[in-house]
């Protein structure tokens, strides 16, 4: 629990610094208010379960020139040795901070956030054998927008998601498969690399 509190403190400090730096100039809110909608594909890697592919969508609400927020939902499935399927459902949010004020075509950013996640592990050959758990996670990483037009961008992001709840582990032996629910270690999670396409629909304020 202490680990969870530490992670939350780090993330909220990061957000606080982001919001402070974005409030130093009166003109920095001219891009605030943009509402974007997009679709995403995600590659999950570097977890003890192996690699998987996911799909989902997101919307963004830009708060200021250098601060944006992303609200996402995705579904990722991982095949473990052709015997077990691990499904992840994420729904969450991230704060995005643009360190370069005048970047136009390529706009890098730092992102960090929180999500709720649901994991279900199922035997592929016997789908009635299944274990699931609900949990929470935090994620942080680096990303960049490739602004193809003023309103349309392709975004590539890579973030590490740390699970803050129990973990479902799969033990595959020649004649036996066991799924156990165990306590999470400090950095248990997966690296999520996402490609997304987004379109700025319109401004919610500052029109």
């Amino acid at each position: 629990m202490k680990q969870v509190i530490k992670i939350y403190i780090i993330i909220f400090n990061l957000f606080f610094l982001c919001s402070l730096s974005s409030q130093t100039d009166e003109t920095n809110t001219k891009n605030g208010g943009w509402f974007s909608l997009g679709a995403r594909s995600t590659l999950s890697a570097f977890s003890d379960e192996g690699a998987g592919i996911g799909t989902g969508g997101q919307f963004r609400i830009q708060l200021a020139d250098q601060v944006n927020t992303e609200w996402f939902a995705d579904y990722i499935t991982i095949n473990i040795d052709d015997k077990v399927r691990s499904d992840y459902y994420h729904i969450g949010w991230s704060v995005m901070f643009y360190p370069l004020k005048n970047a136009k075509k390529i706009k890098p950013y730092i992102l960090a956030g929180h999500c709720f996640d649901y994991n279900r592990v199922t035997l592929i050959s016997s789908p009635s054998i299944s274990v699931d758990r609900w949990g929470s996670a935090v994620q942080a990483g680096l990303a960049t927008h490739f602004n193809i037009t003023e309103r349309f961008d392709l975004t590539l992001s890579s973030q590490y998601m740390v699970h803050l709840s129990t973990v479902l582990r799969t033990h595959i032996e020649p004649n036996n498969i066991a799924i156990t629910e165990e306590q999470s270690t400090i950095l248990h999670g997966h690296l999520l690399t996402t490609i997304s396409l987004n379109y700025k629909i319109g401004k919610l304020w500052n029109k």
């Binding site: 997009g38 679709a39 799909t55 349309f152 490609i195 396409l197």
Partner: peptide
């Protein structure tokens, strides 16, 4: 599938590429 396409339009010809996640 649901996604976005980018179009290269010349006259009435329209070449496009796109990315569409789906289920």
């Amino acid at each position: 599938f649901f996604g976005l396409n980018y179009h290269f339009i010349k006259g009435n010809g329209d070449f496009y590429i796109g990315v569409q996640p789906g289920v």
